[in-house]
Design a protein around this nucleic acid. Sequence first.
DNA 1: AGAATTATTATGTACATACATAAAATCATT
DNA 2: AATGATTTTATGTATGTACATAATAATTCT
Lengths: 232, 232
Amino acid sequence: MNRPAFRNWQTVQEEVLRRIHAREWKPGDLIPNEADLAEEFGCARATVNRALRTVAESGLLDRRRKAGTRVALQPVAKATIDISLIRQEIEARGQKYGYQLISRSLQEPPAQISGALQVPTTRMLHLSALHLANDAPYAVEDRWINTATVPTALSETFDTISGNEWLLANAPYTHGEIAFSAAAATKEEARLLGCPLHAAVFVIDRLTWDHAASVTKVRLIFAPGHQLRTTL
Amino acid sequence: MNRPAFRNWQTVQEEVLRRIHAREWKPGDLIPNEADLAEEFGCARATVNRALRTVAESGLLDRRRKAGTRVALQPVAKATIDISLIRQEIEARGQKYGYQLISRSLQEPPAQISGALQVPTTRMLHLSALHLANDAPYAVEDRWINTATVPTALSETFDTISGNEWLLANAPYTHGEIAFSAAAATKEEARLLGCPLHAAVFVIDRLTWDHAASVTKVRLIFAPGHQLRTTL
DNA sequence: AGAATTATTATGTACATACATAAAATCATT
DNA sequence: AATGATTTTATGTATGTACATAATAATTCT
């Protein structure tokens, strides 16, 4: 019997995935422990561990100490979405990027905004801008910046660089929340995007934090037809 | 000098993140190599490697052999979205799940569908169903199943179990594509969801494959107001 | 029987060492 | 100076051993 050599963790991972897909290991099944698999595959336990850990991260395996490793009953597909700069997104598609500042003002935010950012109702920096791809409207950016956290934003005009880009370079964040939804274009959004009033638009809302301090809240409204795609 | 003990990879990771956030290591900077960091932190190189690898996976570091590790110039935020069963999604929020089959038929798909699934224009199984949360319409499921890949689907009525759930249990897939977008509700969708015609609805399109064979193409149309949320 | 304690076990990880690999840097050659 | 071969170097990973940790199983005590 010529035992195939599973000598690196990728190979072991492929074999594990094959067995799951081929239903040799069925959903809910307890699979052999690391030590046994290591012996079977002719490699070290650490190698098996690395492979199984990676598969578990993708959601196909459930692992618990002492209880062992079992094939997930209801595998939760995990879609990873790369949130890059809008400029990069457009340039990556070989299109020309354009940016246009619509308004910049210091004003008191609506309760909904100041609540989300958890700041007392002081005046904040509000930006409205338009991103263009090949001169066509691509997305409207509506942003509030917490000037208590990022005071340097007050001395930036934002007429050539987007809030998006300036903040990434000047205001680090530790974590954040993001939400995707659909909305009907408001009058202002429709005007900027050149689409009918109440057209269905794709919206991304993002809120970022630097430790306990809120940094910015941004709403991106994409022109009709926009899709956010990824692989599973 | 009492050197703090960074004795496990999580602690090392936290320190690395701290230095990046504190701009001790600035975007674009080359950071010390693994061996040096291991000495500084008083741990093994493998421990530093695990920490740096994890941070790199999150997009904050760029690593290349021989070239070393540097802080990402434009960190690409990665949002991971868990795609679970609609039933689980609803039950996880403590709501009652309901399911209603609208139609089930064998028919020749429109060119757009058969093209995406890369099958000759044979008859395919088409399902239309409604998912409910606390008896209120939650999402419309419009699904095409490739009966060449999943012949057993032909003997399932789908009147009590959704295509979503049945396929997960009976038709494994190796990979897939997913797209998020906004659309105006069609007449039929508006009727089922109980919303105005052309209301802005959130849409998820998914296409799954088992190796080279297409499995299913599904379009989920969510009731107005639906949000898909995650953390950054 | 039920509760508290202890033993067992599978995963999780740290470490030292060794070698693989990719890419940059250097050197030799034309 | 351009080209090609060689060396160097930082990351990538495999291995054996050791111990940590969490959760289950078994045991003891009340």
